[in-house]
C-alpha cells in the first residue's frame, strides 16, 4: 500500500521554522510505521523512512564529513525502529549512505584506459568529493547522540590522490568511527570520530628524483575530528655508479 508522510507534516511547526531547506524535508517521509510494543515500561515503534532523491546534510559533531543518503531511481526506503521507552534508541536497517569527506587533501581519481590516474569530475566539471560508501549498514543512535554502525556493512572508498604529492591511494580496508564509545584507532585522541585507513595500495604518479619507489607503506592514516594525519613512507633502491 502506498503511503508517504512528508517529514514536514510530522514535525512541530516550530521546528520546521529553523530548517533552511524545508522543501528538501518534503521529499523525506515515513512510508510506514506502527506501534509494535506497549508492554510495561517499553514502547517501540517500527516503520520505514524514505526519500525521493539523494539527500546530503551535515550532522552535529561530525565535522569531518557530510552524510549523503543515497538513492537509486525513485524512492529509497529504509526500515527503522524507534524505542521511546525505557531508553531512547533509533535504528536504521540496511542503509546505503556516503560519508563525503570535507578535505581538499583527498581528491577522487580513477584510472583511464592508458592506466593514468585522472581526477573524477561531476557533470559540471567540478571535482567529485572523496566519499566512503557504506552499504547495508545498521545505524544506531542513542539518547546521548551517540551514533554507531553495527554489523559488517560493505565500505568502499574510491581511489584518492593525496593532494599534489603524486601519491594515489587505493584503500582496501578502512574503519569508520562515529561513536565516542569506540576505542579510538592507534594515533587518535580519545573521542575520535572519523575514518581510519587500515590497508591501502599506493601508486606513484610522478617522478621522485628519477627513481620509482621499490616499496611503500602507510600507517595510522586518520581522517576525522582531529584533522588528516598519518605517515606515508616510500623506499628506493639506490645504485651508486
Amino acid at each position: 500500500m502506498f503511503a508517504f508522510a512528508p517529514i514536514t507534516q510530522t514535525l512541530p511547526k516550530l521546528v520546521t521554522k529553523f530548517v533552511k531547506n524545508v522543501k528538501l524535508l518534503d521529499e523525506i517521509g515515513y512510508t510506514d510505521f506502527d506501534v509494535v510494543s506497549d508492554d510495561v515500561g517499553t514502547l517501540e515503534t517500527n516503520g520505514k523512512i524514505a526519500w525521493l532523491r539523494e539527500i546530503e546534510f551535515d550532522l552535529p559533531g561530525l565535522d569531518f564529513a557530510s552524510v549523503a543518503l543515497l538513492s537509486g531511481n525513485g524512492m529509497t526506503e529504509v526500515a527503522f525502529s524507534h524505542r521511546r521507552r525505557p531508553d531512547f534508541e533509533f535504528r536504521l536497517f540496511n542503509l546505503d549512505a556516503a560519508l563525503r569527506l570535507k578535505t581538499d587533501l583527498l581528491q577522487r581519481v580513477r584510472q583511464n584506459n592508458d592506466g593514468k590516474w585522472i581526477p573524477e569530475l561531476d557533470a559540471k566539471g567540478a571535482p567529485k568529493p572523496a566519499e566512503i560508501v557504506v552499504s547495508g549498514a545498521e545505524v544506531v543512535m542513542t539518547a546521548d547522540s551517540d551514533i554507531s554502525i553495527i554489523g559488517a556493512p560493505t565500505m568502499t572508498l574510491p581511489a584518492v590522490a593525496l593532494g599534489e604529492t603524486g601519491i594515489v591511494l587505493e584503500i582496501t580496508e578502512l574503519e569508520i568511527y562515529l561513536s565516542a564509545k569506540q576505542t579510538p584507532p592507534t594515533g587518535a585522541p580519545p573521542g575520535f570520530k572519523g575514518v581510519a585507513i587500515k590497508k591501502a595500495t599506493m601508486h606513484f604518479t610522478r617522478d621522485f628524483g628519477g627513481a620509482t619507489p621499490t616499496g611503500a607503506t602507510c600507517t595510522d592514516l586518520l581522517i576525522g575530528s582531529s584533522g588528516f594525519s598519518g605517515r606515508v613512507e616510500a623506499y628506493w633502491t639506490v645504485t651508486y655508479g
Binding site: 532523491r53 525513485g74 524512492m75
Partner: peptide, 13 residues
C-alpha cells in the same frame, strides 16, 4: 497538500 514529487512517486509505483 502533498508535494508534487510524492504524487509522482505514487503514480509511478
Amino acid at each position: 497538500k502533498l508535494p508534487l514529487p510524492v504524487l509522482k512517486e505514487s503514480w509511478t509505483e
